[in-house]
């Protein structure tokens, strides 16, 4: 019931074996060693395992690893380039958008996907996007402010 998978993770081609009943989140963490993706509830409620699959944000606990055959996956490890935080990551730091950091990878991947589709989202769009991501310590205010800061900068750079 184990099969070899080939897929692209953060731009790198990878190949590894996955049992049929393993979800994508466990595959990323335990097989590929990419522990930046956090597993919280493992039944699709908390959003902490959000990764981007073929351009779309998805819950890694609700997709089987075998379904990712040939897919292009982006995880939190792929956001920083050459040791430099992505603009959203930097804004999270500047706006105190994390404390314990457990929800942070899911928040970052959800908002990264949103900001690609909608470079200049308003507060309501940002709150709707992260309505599927639960934070239990920081509170959402700093997270929303960080995303708004990136949105405002995107608007300034396009106008």
């Amino acid at each position: 019931m184990t099969a070899m998978l080939t897929l692209t993770v953060n731009g790198r081609d990878m190949s590894a074996a996955a049992p049929a009943n393993m979800h994508l989140g466990d595959f990323l963490r335990h097989v590929l060693g990419l522990t930046g993706t956090h597993m919280g509830c493992e039944h699709g409620v908390c959003g902490s395992c959000t990764v981007i699959v073929d351009g779309q944000p998805v819950r890694a606990c609700l997709m089987l690893a075998r379904q990712a055959q040939g897919a292009r996956i982006e995880t939190v490890e792929g956001l920083a380039q050459d040791g430099r935080l992505s603009p959203l990551q930097a804004a999270f730091r500047d706006h105190h958008a994390l404390q314990c950091g457990f929800c942070t990878p899911g928040m970052l991947m959800t908002l990264t996907a949103l900001l690609r589709d909608v470079p200049n989202p308003g507060e309501s769009e940002i709150r709707a996007a992260i309505s599927g991501n639960i934070c239990r310590c920081t509170g959402y205010q700093g997270i929303v402010e960080a995303a708004l800061a990136v949105a405002t900068r995107n608007e300034a750079s396009t106008s």
Partner: peptide, 24 residues
């Protein structure tokens, strides 16, 4: 049958359903 899996995979993870075969 496994379609989008947004209910079924959660139910599989919780072992609320234990099929012998999953048809994606």
């Amino acid at each position: 049958i496994l379609a989008g899996g947004q209910s079924l995979v959660a139910m599989l993870n919780l072992r609320l359903v234990t099929p012998d075969h999953l048809v994606d």
